[in-house]
Amino acid sequence: MKTQEELTEIVRDHFSDMGEAATLYVQVYESSLESLVGGVIFEDGRHYTFVYENEDLVYE
């Protein structure tokens, strides 16, 4: 099982292909040891929320 830090790095790496991230945040109260819930805000103003669970990243 991966730590939240490892899950955060996986998510950060995925979003790095989409541009320069200004902020990546984790909603600790919705996350667990198995999943990471949060969002990313890019330098150009785009904002996505995400759920990373079971090696699957879903974002909108």
Rank of each mutant, 00 (worst) to 15 (best):
S35A: 09
E43D: 08
T8K: 08
N54F: 11
Y25M: 05
E9V: 09
V11R: 03
I41V: 06
G45D: 01
F15W: 05
Y52F: 08
D56N: 14
H14W: 14
V26I: 12
S31D: 05
V51E: 02
Y25N: 03
A22D: 06
F15L: 05
Y48M: 04
H14V: 09
A21S: 09
L33C: 12
M18Q: 04
E9M: 11
S35R: 15
L57C: 11
R12M: 11
F15A: 03
A21D: 09
R12E: 03
E30H: 10
V26N: 00
L57D: 02
H14K: 11
E53H: 09
H47G: 03
E20N: 12
A22Y: 15
K2R: 10
E60K: 09
D56C: 15
Y52M: 05
H47N: 03
E6A: 07
A21C: 15
F50M: 00
E20P: 11
E55S: 12
D17H: 15
E34H: 09
L7I: 09
Q4E: 07
H14L: 15
F50V: 01
S31K: 08
G45C: 10
G19S: 04
S35W: 11
L57K: 02
V58P: 02
Y48K: 00
L57G: 01
S16P: 05
N54C: 15
D13L: 15
T3N: 06
D13N: 14
D56M: 15
S32H: 09
R12F: 07
L57M: 06
E30S: 10
Q27C: 15
E55G: 15
V40W: 06
H14C: 15
V28I: 12
K2F: 06
T8A: 10
T8G: 03
V26Y: 06
T8S: 07
I41S: 01
S16F: 09
G19W: 10
V26G: 01
L36C: 08
D44R: 02
E6N: 05
E5F: 10
S32R: 06
L33P: 11
V37N: 01
E55N: 13
D17E: 13
Y29N: 02
V58I: 10
T49E: 04
E60M: 11
E60H: 11
Q27E: 14
A22M: 14
L57Y: 04
M18D: 02
V51A: 04
V11G: 02
Y25R: 03
S32K: 09
A22T: 10
V40F: 04
N54K: 07
M1Y: 09
E55I: 08
E55C: 13
T23M: 11
S32D: 08
S31L: 11
Y25E: 05
S35Y: 15
R12P: 03
R46Q: 05
G45S: 03
V37T: 09
V40D: 01
G19D: 04
E6W: 10
F50T: 00
F15T: 01
G19C: 14
K2Q: 07
Y29A: 03
H14R: 11
T8H: 05
M1T: 11
D17K: 15
E6F: 07
S16H: 08
G38M: 11
L57H: 04
E43W: 08
E55P: 03
F50Q: 00
M1I: 10
V26D: 02
A22E: 07
L24S: 01
D44Q: 02
Y48G: 00
I10L: 09
E30M: 12
R46F: 09
L7D: 02
D56K: 15
S16M: 10
G39L: 14
E6Q: 10
Q27W: 14
G19Q: 04
K2N: 04
Y29Q: 03
T23F: 14
Q4M: 13
V11I: 10
E9I: 11
F15E: 02
L57N: 03
L57V: 05
V58G: 04
R12L: 13
M1W: 10
V58L: 10
Y48R: 00
I41D: 00
E53C: 13
Y52Q: 00
K2T: 04
D13Q: 15
K2V: 05
E34V: 10
F15S: 01
V28T: 07
E20F: 14
N54R: 06
E34D: 07
G39C: 15
T3C: 14
E55L: 10
L7T: 05
E5K: 09
